[in-house]
Amino acid sequence: MSHLPTALPDGAIHALRTPLAALQSAIDVFALPPGAQMRAEAEDIARRQVRRLTELVAELDGFHRLQQMAGGGPGCAPVALRLAPMLAQAWTQVGPRPEDAGSAPPAVPPSLRVTALPEALQPALAALLRHAVRHGLRLEADVRDGRIRLRAGPPGPQGPQDPQAGARPLEGGLELLRRVARASDGSLRLDPSDPDGGFCLELPLAPDGSGIARKAG
C-alpha cells in the first residue's frame, strides 16, 4: 500500500472554507435588524453548514487514518465490516430531503462484509450517498466473483467506464472513497458517458470467517 498518497486532497482547504464562509455570513445576518424571514433562513443555513463542516472533518479524519494505515501506524488496520448497517447509517447522515423521496440506499445482503478501515469507510459511504442524492443518481448493488459493485448512475444501461479516471482529482468525499477502495484492492471508476457524475465502486468481499467489526492489532 506504499502507493497511497500522503497529502490531503488539494481542495480540502477550499472545501472547508466554503461552509465556514457561509456560516460566518449567516451569523452576521443574525446580527442585522430583525427580519423574521431572513433570520429563519440564516438559521437554516447555519445548521446546514455546521453539518457540512462535521462531514468534512469526518472525511479529513478518514484521510488521516488511511495515511496512518499506509505508514503502518498502530491501531490502523482494516477489519471486516458489515456493509448493510454502514450504508443505513450513512443514509441517516445524508438526511435526504422530502423531495429526494425517490432515492433509496442500495439494498445489500445483511451478511455481506468488506475489509476496510471503519473510520474511513463510513464518511466515504456518506459521501457516496450524498453525491448520488445531489445528482439524482440511482444506486444499485451487484455481488459477483467475490466482489461487490455499487453503481451510481442514471437508470438504464451502464456506459463505458473511464480507464484514466484513476488519475483525475475528485471532490473530497469521492477522493476519500477512491482511496478507501484502493486501500482494499478495490476501485472507483467513473462513467464518462454520464454528465451527472455516475461511477462504480468495487470492493472485494471479506474472506469467509472474518470477524465482524473487530479491530485488528
Binding site: 466554503t18 464562509a21 457561509a22 455570513s25 449567516a26 452576521d28 445576518v29 442585522l32 435588524p33 431572513m38 433562513e41 440564516a42 443555513i45 446546514r48 453548514q49
Partner: peptide
C-alpha cells in the same frame, strides 16, 4: 457558486 454563501452575502450587501 455556493448558494448559501451567495444568499447570506446578498442579505449583508442589502443591509448596506
Amino acid at each position: 457558486d455556493d448558494a448559501d454563501s451567495a444568499r447570506m452575502l446578498s442579505a449583508l450587501v442589502s443591509s448596506n
